[in-house]
């Protein structure tokens, strides 16, 4: 299981923005909920591509070999 990393920015107006990194899938929401529980009300939530990615290690290599005309 991946270890989470949080990047937290606390603005000078007190607003707290949290990015959960290093965790894929719905588990990242659990980590986000942890910070929410400590801080307060949620105003916005954005899910990025990694959220929808499978939790296992999947590697896709793509190669391009020259061009054909």
């Amino acid at each position: 299981m991946s270890k989470p990393e949080f990047e937290i920015v606390i603005s000078k107006t007190g607003k707290v923005t949290v990015e959960v990194k290093g965790v894929k899938g719905p588990q990242c929401i659990e980590y986000a909920e942890l910070i929410k529980k400590i801080v307060g009300h949620e105003e916005e939530r954005h899910l990025t591509g990694d959220y929808y990615a499978p939790e296992g290690e999947v590697r896709i290599d793509t190669h391009t070999k020259g061009t054909t005309s």
């Binding site: 607003k15 949290v18 929401i29 990025t48 990694d50």
Partner: peptide, 11 residues
Amino acid sequence: MSAVIVLTPIV
């Protein structure tokens, strides 16, 4: 990055 949340603190 997989999730971003914006929070308003309760003081």
